[in-house]
Amino acid sequence: MLKRLNPLTVLAAALIWIVATTLVFSVAFQSGALILFAALILVLGRISPARLLLLMIPFALFGFGFFTTNVLFRQENAEAVAVFSQSLAESDAARGGLILFLRALAGGMISLFFALSIEPVALVRALMAYLRLPPRIAYALFAAVEVVPDLAATAHQIRLVEAMRAGRPLRRFPTPGELFRMVVPLMAFAVRRAGRTAIAMEARGFRADRPRTLLRVPGFSRLDLIFALALVAVLGLGLIFA
């Protein structure tokens, strides 16, 4: 269902909610935003809970860093005496750290909602059609979307060749030495790919001052209006009861 929404609708909703979670310093509001967008991803996006938890690990680590920094190194704590002289749950530092932790989780969940709900190519087309994104930037984004999978495939081939040459099985994760040795070949691949893209665009008469027709531009529907109004209504209720 989320794929049927216009990418700009999803983008606007995500930005509004991220701004709200940044400005509202409330445990209830941050928890509500986290639960809301997790439910949207699981129910409407049909993402498995295990995959969602795996994707949230970096945001959880980031938020945990906020929490520990706020609890242990907050200036008002007068070293560790104030922390251990009262219940941790009643500590202002712990409460502030918890809100920062939940804010990182909520922001990460909203970002995942946006990333999992749109097609990158459709988003670029919508930006060109409705927000007048310059064609040069748009086609650069198109080229980046195309080159990333090829870059990953090339990196896998380099690791496979190195493993065969060394007579060992392919490691699940590359070592720092492998990553260092892949830098130059991957840079060479990216430079060659960029040159081929430039030649192809020039051969097709690509110029910034020429009008061009956009194909398969995503449109807006009643579903976009319902989705936007529902999220705005929920946001209003959250701000009232926060």
Score class of each variant (00 low, 15 high):
residue 165 R to D: 12
residue 127 L to S: 03
residue 126 A to W: 03
residue 75 Q to A: 15
residue 199 I to H: 13
residue 124 V to P: 00
residue 90 E to M: 12
residue 147 V to E: 09
residue 91 S to T: 02
residue 169 P to E: 11
residue 137 I to F: 12
residue 160 L to E: 15
residue 84 F to Q: 07
residue 108 G to E: 04
residue 195 G to P: 08
residue 144 A to V: 14
residue 71 V to A: 04
residue 126 A to S: 10
residue 84 F to V: 09
residue 77 N to R: 03
residue 93 A to W: 00
residue 107 G to Y: 03
residue 78 A to D: 15
residue 88 L to R: 09
residue 107 G to A: 09
residue 144 A to R: 09
residue 197 T to N: 11
residue 135 P to A: 04
residue 119 E to L: 12
residue 76 E to T: 10
residue 80 A to G: 11
residue 194 A to T: 15
residue 196 R to F: 13
residue 155 A to E: 10
residue 118 I to Y: 01
residue 122 A to V: 05
residue 98 L to G: 01
residue 98 L to Q: 00
residue 194 A to E: 12
residue 125 R to P: 02
residue 96 G to K: 04
residue 198 A to H: 10
residue 98 L to C: 02
residue 158 I to L: 15
residue 175 T to C: 07
residue 175 T to E: 13
residue 94 A to Y: 05
residue 102 L to S: 01
residue 85 S to N: 12
residue 182 M to F: 04
residue 160 L to Q: 13
residue 99 I to V: 13
residue 183 V to P: 01
residue 157 Q to C: 12
residue 163 A to E: 04
residue 158 I to K: 02
residue 175 T to N: 08
residue 87 S to K: 06
residue 171 R to Q: 14
residue 82 A to F: 05
residue 133 L to N: 03
residue 202 E to A: 15
residue 112 L to V: 09
residue 198 A to I: 13
residue 88 L to V: 11
residue 159 R to C: 00
residue 136 R to D: 10
residue 182 M to S: 06
residue 99 I to P: 00
residue 161 V to H: 10
residue 159 R to L: 06
residue 93 A to F: 02
residue 163 A to N: 05
residue 206 F to P: 06
residue 125 R to H: 08
residue 165 R to E: 14
residue 66 F to G: 11
residue 107 G to R: 01
residue 157 Q to S: 15
residue 118 I to R: 00
residue 78 A to I: 11
